[in-house]
Design a protein around this nucleic acid. Structure first.
Lengths: 105, 105
DNA sequence: CAATCACTTCACCAATTGGTGAAGTATCTG
DNA sequence: CAGATACTTCACCAATTGGTGAAGTGATTG
């Protein structure tokens, strides 16, 4: 299930901060690591998880690695959330109908 | 961070199926366990994770335990997703503006 | 060419996670 | 009251995860 791996990728505070940061624009590994008290190997792993989940792209520029977000990866989450809320919104609608016209059904 | 624990709760396929199932209506532990090749102790753990993440409510009815979804728990996710997409939508808007009127800026 | 910089890969560790079977606790049924 | 039912708690296990320091790779700088 690709959706669960997306959620797994977002389940870590460092990784959540990374995608929030990348939503503001590209950044190198070093720039991503700086604000967190974390070593580069750890950051390499975190970004690796995000790449494997299809949420981040890496491209090499000289000796630096520039990371950017793949926004499409979140549309799946949005769609799932939409399906779910759609369901209970109709439930609430039906409930409101019943409260408004208790004579029916 | 409560958002990361929400994502962590959704990062497991069984748990994702549980909340999808509960979005359709309440269910007992046994009903939740049935479709998955999983024992009741495992299901107790999974539902426990969802309860700790504030996504599910449990109430005892006789000797059964009825679980229901707390939809508010997902509004946080929706808000975060909204913030993120808002950012890159304005970026795309600005890009389109520049393409449309290259004389400006 | 030597040193430095920006990473990545490797080997390892401690903590967490998802699973189990066995035993315990209420609640209902005959 | 004696099962049976619907869980929960417990002790345990194997696999995964997030972290580290040390060593390796390739681009840049003096």
């Amino acid at each position: 299930m690709p959706l669960t791996s997306t959620f797994a990728a977002l389940a870590d505070p460092t990784r959540l901060a990374i995608v929030t940061r990348l939503s503001r624009g590209e950044a190198t590994m070093g720039e991503l690591a700086a604000p967190h008290r974390i070593t580069l190997p750890a950051m390499t792993k975190h970004v690796g998880v995000l790449v494997d989940a299809g949420m981040v792209k890496r491209r090499k520029v000289g000796r630096t690695v520039v990371c950017s977000l793949r926004p499409e990866s979140l549309s799946e989450v949005q769609a799932w959330l939409g399906d779910l809320t759609a369901y209970w919104n109709t439930t609430i609608d039906r409930l409101e109908d019943l409260l408004a016209n208790p004579e029916e059904s």
